[in-house]
Nucleic acid binder design. Sequence first.
DNA 1: GATTAATAGTTGCATCTGCAACCAAGTCAA
DNA 2: TTGACTTGGTTGCAGATGCAACTATTAATC
Lengths: 153, 153
Amino acid sequence: MADKTFDLQDFLPYLLNQAAEATSRSFEGVYKARYGMTRTQWRVLANLGRFGAMTARDICRISHIEKTKVSRAVAALETEVMLARAPSPEDGRAEILSLTPRGLAVFAELGERAQAFDADLRAKLGPELAARIDAILREIIVLQADAGPEGDD
Amino acid sequence: MADKTFDLQDFLPYLLNQAAEATSRSFEGVYKARYGMTRTQWRVLANLGRFGAMTARDICRISHIEKTKVSRAVAALETEVMLARAPSPEDGRAEILSLTPRGLAVFAELGERAQAFDADLRAKLGPELAARIDAILREIIVLQADAGPEGDD
DNA sequence: GATTAATAGTTGCATCTGCAACCAAGTCAA
DNA sequence: TTGACTTGGTTGCAGATGCAACTATTAATC
């Protein structure tokens, strides 16, 4: 059947990238301008802020960020004194990562802004579309997680 | 009202990135393994394949890829003999880019695979969700395009 | 207990990218 | 025509990233 020439503009990975990049870039300005943070750093911070102290490995599992990226983000956040490491009592290899008071403050502020950004975007989308989007994206994510090995950032 | 701590896992830009990255990475394997192409190169090729000869600037407009990226992708595709440049008769600065026979062949093959990939993904998503996704993503893209300046890749 | 395999995390290196600065050609206006 | 400005495209440089290789510790197997 369908033998029309391929149109990138209808290609789901492409559309997803466009949307993802557009929104991420837009919000990136917030943490970049204020704290010189990178996208990965923001995500690591956000996960620690939301879920509390944990190891780098846990962050990888939860957020599907590659361990190299996490490692470097942690190092950067540490030198910014937003995060502290403590040796794990159970596992000599692992380190327990937690936010410092400063890290918590930054998370509180950025988290608030992120919520506002998100709410605004959903409002603009309208209830119809906003209601569907989460389920669809989560479904895509798990589908690919089953199919391919690593989903990364 | 809502004063719960921010959860990254519900943040639209984050979800979009996860889904985008997961799907793109999955398909990336195809053109990377076969032709050592980069994501940007694939997209430039796909646009030229779909819309025919045009200038780099046109590609930027259509696909929202940054001009630096396009420039380098074009150079790479040229050395791979998938693309040829011709001086524009109308504008001495511009070059008309077009796919070579090889470029067309590669586009035909990858385009077919992309269509299959896309169809498969949509099938897995189910008609309910698949029907909505395009409209939502396009809406997000235009919303951000209005808001922010550049949406890039 | 010794050896082997697996795992937490870091680092080197080779890209890929973004931004600003740049060149060359076109536009506009006096 | 000349000079100021815009625009198509490239390049330098400073990050950010992915992958493979590496260290150190833990688990497994004999």
